[in-house]
Computed example of a mutant assay.
Amino acid sequence: MDRLKGKVAAITGGASGIGLGAVERFAAEGARVLVGDIDEAAGLALAARYGGEVAFQRCDVTEEADIAALMDAASARFGGLDVVFNNAGAGGARETLSEMTGEAWDRTQALLLRSVALGIRYAIPHLKRRGGGSIINTASIAGMQAGAGPIAYSTMKAAVIHLTRLAAAELGRDRIRVNAICPGLILTNIFTPGVPSGFADMVKAEMRQGAPEAQPIPKPGEPADIAAAALFFASDESEFVTGVHMLVDGGMFTGPRQAWDPELRGQRLREREERLAVWRAEHPDETSEAI
């Protein structure tokens, strides 16, 4: 407890999913938090749970003025700004490369990359006035490999990883740390926006069931798992850490399934022995075990 006591944080996309998990964890650790989100009803309800320690301001991160206003409001309301979690986002355009229009690319870029760059930009003067601070960006495992998300989403998340490194280099002398978190399979509604809640629940149930088949750790990720990583980056415990991206993915990025699934390894070993037995039966005069 109290790992963030005395700190002020601004969290975008804080009314649901990963952002909500971070708000709850940061508040539990003593931070005062300004939540930015387009969901006003959820944001206001969240603020009401905490009294004056958590506040809400509507923020559409595709609007530059909204981002600037969020950073200004956090500093004005709570007397400064120490931590910024650039987290807001969605799945973006779902088209393939052969289908994608420039407009679709631009919308996704504005939501997932431009928003992060502007979140950093408008946080800088406030963090400098506090003698430094921490900026945390939500990237994704999709920014590191193919097949983990739509192509536009994945491209922007890869750019967020590199932006994080560049910003860390530029801002280090101001004692501003910049790091990214790369979630894997996390139970949120990021890829089911605007669908009936029952359908979204069905998708999450499928994710929960499929998690053991996708990664070494046989459980789906929860927003609390990402919040724990964000807490480390927000706290003084990470004061010597900047420019890195932390995978929080249950081991999904460690390698293909045969690297971590004992059943699959056993199956492949049995298949090899069966092939070897067949080969020996067909070549009784051979002594080598090579096949």
Rank of each mutant, 00 (worst) to 15 (best):
N86R: 00
D106C: 05
L112D: 01
G89A: 12
T108P: 01
S98I: 13
A117G: 08
G89W: 05
G89R: 05
F78I: 12
T108S: 11
T96N: 15
A117N: 04
A90L: 07
A110F: 04
G79D: 12
E103W: 05
F78T: 07
L112T: 02
S98V: 14
T108V: 09
F85Y: 12
G80N: 08
M71L: 13
E103M: 05
D82I: 04
A74E: 07
F85P: 01
A90P: 03
S75I: 11
G92Q: 06
G80S: 11
Q109M: 13
W105V: 03
T101H: 06
A76M: 10
E99Q: 15
G91E: 12
A110K: 15
L112F: 04
A117V: 06
R114L: 08
F78C: 09
A76C: 10
N86Q: 05
G92E: 06
V116N: 00
T96Y: 12
A90N: 14
V84L: 12
A90I: 08
N86M: 02
A110G: 09
L112R: 01
D72V: 11
A93R: 09
L112N: 04
D72N: 13
A93M: 11
A73E: 15
M100W: 01
A93T: 04
D106H: 13
L81G: 02
G119A: 01
V116W: 00
A76G: 12
W105G: 01
E95R: 11
N87W: 06
L118P: 03
L111S: 07
V83C: 08
R94T: 11
Q109F: 15
G102N: 08
G119T: 01
T96R: 15
